[in-house]
Design a protein around this nucleic acid. Sequence first.
DNA 1: TAAGTCATGTAATCGGTTACATGATTGC
DNA 2: GCAATCATGTAACCGATTACATGACTTA
Lengths: 188, 188
Amino acid sequence: MSLRFAILGLLTSGELSGYEITRRFEQSVGYFWHARAQQIYPELARLESEGLVIGRAVPQAGRPDKRVYTITSRGLDELTAWVLTPSPLTLTKDEFLVKVWSYGLVDPAAALAALEQHRRQQEERLAAYRAIEAAFEGAHPEAVPPAFLGPYLTLRAGITFVESFLAWADDAARILRARLTQPPQSAS
Amino acid sequence: MSLRFAILGLLTSGELSGYEITRRFEQSVGYFWHARAQQIYPELARLESEGLVIGRAVPQAGRPDKRVYTITSRGLDELTAWVLTPSPLTLTKDEFLVKVWSYGLVDPAAALAALEQHRRQQEERLAAYRAIEAAFEGAHPEAVPPAFLGPYLTLRAGITFVESFLAWADDAARILRARLTQPPQSAS
DNA sequence: TAAGTCATGTAATCGGTTACATGATTGC
DNA sequence: GCAATCATGTAACCGATTACATGACTTA
């Protein structure tokens, strides 16, 4: 369900082609929902057949022709209704934390190294988010124009979550370091 | 891939039936990976056919017979190898934040109400985590026995993440409240 | 010459959910 | 009597990923 509304949300700021939507999914909404081109094209066709968007062929010179989509008023209605709908708590699926769950089985030094490698990846992500945050620059939170309110809030969510991961990782690293002298041990 | 290793991880603390594994997935590892019974039973069969676990029928009186599984040494080898493997950054999928992304389209008061409802759900989750944390009670972090290190660290991760959501939600609520007098506006 | 971008798709597969089935026992 | 718990499954479906295909243009 979310995919169609993520697409409709993107289209509220103007017409976009499937390709352009695919690119947007690598940023912005993409932090909390993502999809590849192969999923986006059929979804756009479905949205059009349901009258929530309308497509228009745009011939281009020097590059392939494209088909751009505009959200219809019915599409906007369905989107705004959905936005206020209650959401179930997200059941996170995080491969890394499944690994952490078995850290008691392995050498603490090795676990520490794996943890720190993952921490570095998260730090890179944070830097990318911060760079985008700078684009909202100047504008103190209350002054963000309505069209950018949602993107701004979700970006802040992204930053907050990555920062909290880093804080947890530092804490976990401290606990692992205290065990470096102890041998690894299997459970129970 | 993660499902099989989540199951193997659970089996490191002793033999469990498919049903018991299903129950465990509602807590502990379940915070970062989850699966329903229908997925767990076939996976156990697959793990057994690959020699990573061995099953044993346990006749019971007064309740259905069950089949309990033990991790093999090959299973333990594969698990410990996997645990130290680098993990890709998780691409979160969060329906609620897809909605937040379009908060600029709706009445700030309605958005605020939706936000606060979701916040309350997260608070309940935090209370549940804290209750489990109390079971690790007394033991200061460095003293947690190795068999509980992983579960302890993931529980702390769960607590940290929920707390950071609450902090973000408070911040977002503050920003929305500052807009209560302004009319809703559709995107440019 | 090779890789990358723009642009849109099909096909096969997989992981996961929903719905359904069965059947005994225990607690309200 | 009804719902919940214990216990294990099958079948249909759906959302998402991987692999593959095409083809022109641009940049290294």
